[in-house]
Simulated assay, not measured.
Amino acid sequence: MLRRLYDWTMSLAARKSAEVWLAVIAFVESSVFLVPADVLYLPMALARPDRAYRYALVATLASVLGGIAGWLLGYYAYETLAKPILEMYGKLDAFEQLRGSTSADAILLLLVTSGLAHLPPIKVVTILSGAAAINIWLFIASAIIARGARFFFLAWLLRRYGEPIRHFIEKRLGLIASAAAAVLILLYALFHYYV
Rank of each mutant, 00 (worst) to 15 (best):
A131E: 03
R99T: 02
K83E: 13
S142P: 06
I134R: 08
I127T: 00
L111H: 09
V112N: 01
L92Q: 01
Y78K: 06
F153Y: 08
L111G: 13
R147V: 09
G130H: 01
D93E: 15
L98R: 07
L116I: 15
W137D: 13
I136R: 11
R150H: 10
I134E: 04
E79R: 15
I85Q: 02
L92K: 00
F151E: 09
T80Q: 13
V112E: 00
P84S: 09
E87T: 13
A155G: 06
L109T: 10
A94G: 12
I136P: 09
A82Q: 11
W137L: 14
L116T: 09
S101C: 07
T80D: 14
L92P: 01
R147S: 03
R99W: 10
I122H: 03
D93H: 11
L111D: 08
A94I: 05
A143D: 07
F139S: 03
G148N: 07
V125C: 01
A117W: 05
G130T: 04
L158S: 06
S129K: 02
G90H: 00
G100A: 13
T126R: 01
D105C: 10
A141I: 14
A77G: 09
F139K: 12
G115I: 05
F152R: 06
T113V: 14
S129M: 01
L109M: 11
S129E: 03
F95P: 03
K83Y: 08
I145E: 03
Y89M: 08
A106M: 15
L92I: 12
A155E: 04
A82P: 07
L98E: 05
A146T: 05
L108M: 13
I134K: 02
